[in-house]
Amino acid sequence: MHSHRAAYFTTFAALMVLLGVTVWAAHIHLGEWAAAVALLIAAVKTVLIGVIFMHLGSESALIRLFATAGFLWLAIMLAITLSDYETRSLTPDVVPVSSAPAEPTPGH
């Protein structure tokens, strides 16, 4: 078995660079994109660690599936729950009284 030492050192260097990038990115004004950029960089670092340090690159497809299934289910949980929070204020209730249209309400 030959050693992958070189690959590990280059990966480590890449991870340190990405660490710098994520810290730098936090200091520039990205507005609501800040979270997305930070998560993207973190995702890249995680993929790097996963593929090289955790040998996902050389593992069978089944193990790669199990590695990604966790993230997929996390995405399901986050997406559906946050969709509830986003649409919570959109309930079709009446336009507030003060600017309610002057049409006569039934039954009066």
């Binding site: 969709s83 509830d84 929070y85 986003e86 649409t87 919570r88 204020s89 959109l90 309930t91 079709p92």
Partner: peptide, 10 residues
């Protein structure tokens, strides 16, 4: 509960 109507429909 206070869940939004649209999430309820989904």
């Amino acid at each position: 509960t206070g869940q939004s109507m649209y999430a309820g429909l989904v």
